[in-house]
Design a protein around this nucleic acid. Structure first.
Lengths: 246, 246
DNA sequence: CGCGAGCTTGAGGCGATTCAACTGTCGTGG
DNA sequence: CCACGACAGTTGAATCGCCTCAAGCTCGCG
């Protein structure tokens, strides 16, 4: 989170304090039903979730993934993306984030960094949504898949959860397919093609990008511009204090 | 706009005043380049625009359409959707909306309705983005097309720009195709199928929904819930004072 | 050991794309 | 007044990307 805006000591302390009050969600648990407000705002400490919608006949579209370090339902106002069905894809550990909301609500300027970080996160969410639309609307299965993997790597790197070009990716091919608008079978074949061309390694829930630059060129991937997302304010890259996420 | 939140007389007066200072944009004009801030916030009085992104090889994805009554770049903070390339699809007339921004910036409670309407509009924008993702990711060409037409009708009705089941739809099939992730040729054939099955009429820029209920069922369309979008505050449906848009 | 979930593979088919040509309707200018 | 080009829409034919159905595989786990 301090990669999105520099946090003061007071703010970091607050985050660490919040992280002591945890809750565990099993695989498949609904963190938020479609439409109604979720139980309470949460900070994700570990595990992956998806925001999604299902059609009456069973088709599913995943809007995006929630990764460790992300927040759920922490915006200043209700937003459709935050209100849609949110489902745990792995077992997850989350923390009750009400203290963060309370701190922000005071309007205390000591927590300005926190507010900036949340605004940046919300802007990033929206940017990912646009990328996702381009992927699904105008890219081939091959491009979509590579592009999504690069995005995941970028996000996890920002959160300090990637080791070089490798990262844990606990999603099934069915889940990836539902995110990318593909069938499971074609998802499988597409991943195999990426492996065959030595662009990725993928086994037992771990991805390695073997040639990220080529992959980025092939899939037209460019990393988000953090400066834009941060707005005019915070410009300093955050330090390394995120032990609470590991 | 007062369909999204009840506006006071002062607010309506402000909107009308703004609408006197107009500017005309030709077909194809860029209202906002990709990435950088647009010249200034604007209120659309007539004409359609699209928010879009283009890939280096020429493929184009349209994120959504901007209709008369919509605002451009009026949010409280920079948001990726508002920052992406915005192009006039017809000739447009827009008004300089800086007075509205100024009024909001005063924090004056007399302009609370205006703020609520803009928040609601922004939430609606995001909701449309999610619908768009489902369309493109998980619906057939036939479903996508019908669904989009229903959405357009709903939006135009809200703005008082539909006459019953009929409305002006000044988009080319190429534009529709780029929104729905289809080729022009297939867009054409899909529209013909909808006509053949007597679900729509479409000629010389005017659409008529011949059987909206069947169409909604076939395409899994449900109108947005205005109450949710409005937040807890404004609940009263707006009146009819929108002469400035006609 | 047997079961289930996820992954893999083949075969066949449909939906959507591409290429290419043709039509109709404008507005323009000779 | 008509020739002209530009543009949107339409149509046919061939092709391909992706889907569906179906079966077999692998692995972890009770």
């Amino acid at each position: 989170m301090n990669a999105l805006a520099p946090l003061s000591q007071a703010e970091e302390a607050l985050v660490v304090a919040v992280a002591s009050q945890t809750q565990t969600h099993g695989h498949g648990a609904e963190l938020c039903g479609h439409g109604q407000q979720p139980a309470r705002p949460r900070l994700v400490l570990s595990g992956w979730a998806s925001r999604q919608r299902e059609l009456p006949d069973g088709r599913r579209q995943i809007f995006g993934f929630i990764l460790p370090g992300d927040t759920i339902w922490l915006g200043s106002r209700p937003r459709p993306l935050a209100l849609c069905a949110t489902v745990a894809l792995t077992t997850m550990v989350t923390a009750d984030a009400r203290p963060l909301v309370a701190a922000l609500a005071t309007g205390d300027r000591r927590y300005a960094g926190l507010g900036a970080a949340l605004d940046a996160a919300s802007a990033l969410d929206e940017a990912f949504l646009l990328d996702h639309l381009v992927r699904i609307g105008r890219q081939t299965a091959y491009e979509r898949t590579g592009h999504l993997l690069l995005e995941m790597h970028w996000r996890l790197s920002l959160a300090g959860l990637a080791r070089g070009q490798r990262f844990a990716m606990p999603l099934t091919q069915e889940t990836l397919a539902d995110a990318l608008g593909l069938s499971v079978v074609h998802m499988n074949r597409t991943l195999q093609q990426l492996r065959r061309e030595r662009l990725i390694r993928l086994q037992s829930g771990e991805v390695e990008l073997l040639d990220p630059y080529t992959l980025a060129r092939l899939t037209d991937f460019t990393a988000p511009h953090l400066e834009k997302v941060r707005g005019a304010g915070a410009l300093v890259e955050g330090g390394g204090v995120r032990a609470e996420l590991r």
